[in-house]
Simulated assay, not measured.
Amino acid sequence: MKEILLHHFNNLKNTPKTLLLTYIIVYFTWGLGMNAFGAEMEIARFTYWWQVISCYILYMVPISILLKEYSFFNQYAYGLVAMGILEFLGYWLQTSYVYPNNILDKLFSPQNFSLGMALFFALYFPAGNWLVNKINGVLFKK
């Protein structure tokens, strides 16, 4: 177990600074946009704006970096576990606010809301890794 954790820590530590900066900018922008969209559409939002930093940068960026070498399916599957935990804790701790009778509740039912959110947001890992790779490749060609 120690070797696995050390390997993952080294992967994070050895991530090029330009790649890390690209991840941070992309995920921060993405997080602000999705939080604003969720609030505007009255679906869900963070209780505090700075949760974009804790969720998107401090939680999702390291996970994305660790998953970037995996296939699309494996990134999605591992991402689903990560997002399931994040969604569960967000609603349980009430750090995320779900608007009552929102469009997703009406479409899928309130009982399926957090599952739907986890299924959707798990796509961030393969999509985010693809997007960051493309942007980083354009900005920092070798």
Rank of each mutant, 00 (worst) to 15 (best):
S71W: 01
P62K: 04
S109L: 08
A39L: 05
F37R: 06
T18C: 04
M41Q: 12
Y99Q: 04
F9P: 05
F46G: 02
Y23H: 12
I63M: 12
V52G: 00
V132G: 06
L21M: 11
V98Y: 09
K13S: 11
F108I: 14
Y48H: 11
L115S: 09
L5V: 13
H7Q: 13
W130T: 06
H7L: 12
P16F: 09
S54E: 00
L139H: 13
W130I: 06
N10L: 11
V26T: 10
L5R: 08
S96I: 09
E42N: 10
F140T: 08
L89I: 13
E42T: 10
W130N: 05
Q75P: 02
M60H: 07
P100T: 05
L58P: 01
V52C: 01
V81M: 11
N74T: 14
M83T: 14
A36E: 08
K17H: 11
L89D: 08
L58A: 14
N35T: 05
Q75D: 03
H7T: 12
I63N: 02
G31D: 00
Y27E: 04
A122M: 00
G38C: 07
R45T: 03
N136G: 04
E3T: 14
L21I: 09
V132S: 07
M83P: 05
A82W: 01
S109K: 08
I85G: 07
T15W: 05
N112R: 10
S114A: 15
S71P: 02
A122I: 00
S71H: 04
F88R: 05
A122H: 00
W92V: 15
L107Q: 09
I24G: 02
L5A: 15
Q75S: 03
P16K: 13
A77N: 06
F108K: 06
N112D: 09
T95W: 10
L139R: 12
Y70V: 10
M1P: 13
P100R: 05
S114G: 14
F120Y: 09
T15F: 07
W92Y: 14
G116Q: 03
I24C: 12
M60W: 04
K142D: 09
F46C: 04
I25V: 13
S71F: 02
F88L: 07
N101I: 11
L104G: 06
F46S: 01
Y23R: 05
I65K: 02
G116N: 06
P100K: 07
N133H: 15
G128D: 01
W92P: 05
K13F: 10
L86F: 08
F113M: 07
Q75H: 03
G31V: 00
H8L: 14
M117V: 15
K141R: 14
Y78I: 11
P110S: 15
H7D: 13
W50C: 05
K2L: 15
F28S: 07
H8G: 11
M41C: 10
P16D: 12
W30Q: 11
M34R: 03
I65P: 03
F140M: 06
I135S: 01
R45P: 01
A122K: 00
A44M: 13
L115G: 14
G31W: 00
W50Y: 14
W50V: 06
L107C: 09
T22S: 13
F28G: 03
Y27N: 10
S96H: 08
N10S: 14
T29W: 01
